[in-house]
Amino acid sequence: MANKISTDLIRGHTDTIILNILRQGDSYGYQIFKTIIDLSNQQYELKEATLYTAFRRLEKEGLIVSYWGDETQGGRRKYYRIAEDGLARYEQNKKDWEFAKSVLNKLIKGGVEKDEA
């Protein structure tokens, strides 16, 4: 990982990243952790500490719901499922991201045209 994504940059998107994974199927803590690494092509790892804090926040806001799996061996896993509100939030966040991305692109890369008056 020669290039790193700053924590500041990703912080605002943690929830959207989790919602994106859960909208494609229920999952549990460690699996979500691994999925994020895979989705980034091993370029980014979201710390578990951040992940579990986000689960609690998202559940409190009613965006995701949790339930215990029925594994019989080695203890039960706690699964998360996206709620209706979570799906709506995801769509909204995605739109916001598209918009922000295009504006930021212009701001960061755009050339300033000097007005020769």
Partner: peptide
């Protein structure tokens, strides 16, 4: 109690 259970099983898998 629930959080400890959740962390235990995920840590073990890791």
């Amino acid at each position: 109690f629930d959080l400890k259970e959740e962390l235990t099983i995920n840590l073990k898998e890791k």
